[in-house]
Design a protein around this nucleic acid. Structure first.
Length: 443
DNA sequence: TCTGGGGTCCTAGGACCC
DNA sequence: TCTGGGGTCCTAGGACCC
């Protein structure tokens, strides 16, 4: 049996852990630049705030209903995710982290009759040790487990755990699940299926394999098999990424080459960091720039440029140099740019890079330099020391007006708890200091 | 006024080979 | 008059996921 552990309304729940006054209140968390709603508490969902809605379109609901709004705080969510995953890991031998808030766990290490109870135990343990509520769906395949987790989340009677362990339950679950809710069936496929009167997951499995292959291609067949209890989605062997992208929309539009270059240099530097983390070098670097496609009143332009490197690298200065060349190729004066990014792909392990006899760069020396700056940044905080090409970042900075503190990763952001002394105690002496403590949070 | 970021996989079609 | 068949590799774009 495979279990899918899913954190409920993850980002919203992370905010609530450190601000318990928000329990039972509607919360939304916004994307970068405070653009769209990317997470909602149940209360916010009930108010009819749709997923991915631009903030300005739901502003009237937010104001009227006093919805708490947060900018996304990835430092906090990343750390909370890590805590949830470590807790899970203490229960099972094998697990696959699927996203920041989901993991597949292998339940086959438990006897069949103990699975449900074990899952309930995991739900309690994660909630107790992290404050994050989770749901677990368990079934024979990943796709069915995912479906089960939806039921676990939707119906409180399940208490966070839904098990599909026999034919009857599977058929019932399939009949109750609209095709579009199935993992792997997206918007386009739903349209197509609706045309053929395939409305539920159950309708889908009534079709033949060849029909599904023709209409939904090979990935559709995978889903079709999984729904029937046949494992078809393989373990995602964590071999490292095949491409790495760093890109941002700008808080304010950017026109001049210098500022655009500073942003691209920062993205290149971030890509270099991610490459070094997975011990790879890249042979292909792509830079892209866009104007704001939502502004019909402004002239539009978008362009990409690919650089193929003769020697693979993960050195930040070198990547920046290549990105500068690429940006020169595509930059056009007179446009207002909204977004830029760097994508690196075509990786090889860093210890297998073929060298060039006439290479003008002393790579050994460069590696030592990067190792030193990495060590300094690790010890003293991210970006304590950085390349001058990155600039201050202020000219294209993201908007994050509603960001919470880094409660778990920064000493200065730790919350202080004010505990009033019980009335019966004489608090004039020993507890005197406590009453002066600064209260950063209400609990 | 205001609309995110980061991935993977699959397919069709072009270029090229014999 | 008459114009093959079979294969690989690469790339762009679409669809999907969170």
């Amino acid at each position: 049996m495979i279990g899918l552990v899913d954190c409920n309304n993850f980002y919203a729940s992370c905010e609530r852990v450190f601000n318990p006054a928000l329990r039972g209140k509607p919360i939304v968390v916004l994307s970068n630049n405070d653009g769209c709603v990317v997470a909602r508490s149940n209360e916010a969902k009930a108010l009819g705030i749709p997923m991915a809605a631009p903030l300005y379109q739901v502003k009237h609901i937010i104001d009227k209903e006093h919805v708490a709004v947060f900018s996304s705080n990835y430092t906090l969510y990343g750390d909370m995710s890590h805590r949830v995953m470590s807790t899970l890991n203490s229960f099972v031998e094998e697990m696959e982290i699927y996203s920041i808030d989901e993991a597949f766990v292998d339940f086959s290490c438990f006897p069949v009759e103990a699975v449900a109870q074990k899952a309930a135990e995991i739900v309690r343990a994660v909630t107790r040790s992290t404050g994050i509520p989770i749901s677990i769906g368990i079934a024979e395949t990943k796709t069915l487990a995912k479906m089960a987790s939806h039921f676990a989340k939707r119906y409180p009677a399940y208490k966070g755990v839904c098990l599909i362990d026999n034919e009857e339950k599977r058929t019932k679950a399939l009949s109750l699940t609209p095709a579009g809710e199935v993992w792997g069936i997206g918007r386009k496929s739903v349209e197509k299926l609706r045309y053929y009167s395939v409305h539920t997951a159950y309708d889908l499995i009534q079709r033949s394999e060849s029909w599904v292959r023709r209409e939904l291609t090979a990935s559709g067949v995978q889903t079709w098999k999984e729904l029937q209890g046949i494992q078809a989605v393989g373990a995602n062997t964590t071999q490292g990424k095949k491409s790495i992208c760093t890109s941002r929309s700008f808080g304010e539009m950017v026109s001049d080459f210098g500022t655009l270059l500073e942003s691209v240099a920062s993205f290149a530097s971030a890509c270099s960091e991610k490459l070094r983390k997975q011990h790879c070098c890249t042979r292909t670097v792509m830079v892209f720039i866009y104007t704001n496609r939502h502004r019909a009143d402004l002239p539009q332009y978008s362009q990409t440029h690919v650089m193929n490197l003769s020697i693979a690298t993960n050195n930040p200065a070198e990547l920046i140099m290549h990105c500068k060349e690429a940006l020169k190729q595509i930059y056009c004066d007179g446009y207002q740019y909204k977004k830029a990014g760097v994508i690196v792909s075509d990786f090889i392990p860093e210890n297998q890079v073929a060298l060039d006899l006439f290479d003008p760069i002393d790579r050994t020396k460069q590696r030592k330099l990067v190792a030193v700056t990495d060590a300094l940044n690790k010890k003293n905080g991210h970006n304590t020391i950085q390349l001058a090409a990155l600039g201050s970042g202020k000219k294209w900075a993201l908007k994050n007006e509603f960001i919470s503190k880094r409660f778990t990763t920064n000493w200065n952001d730790l919350i202080t708890i004010h505990a009033p002394a019980p009335a019966s105690l004489d608090n004039s002496a020993s507890l005197g200091k406590t009453s002066n403590a600064k209260t950063k949070s209400d609990q």
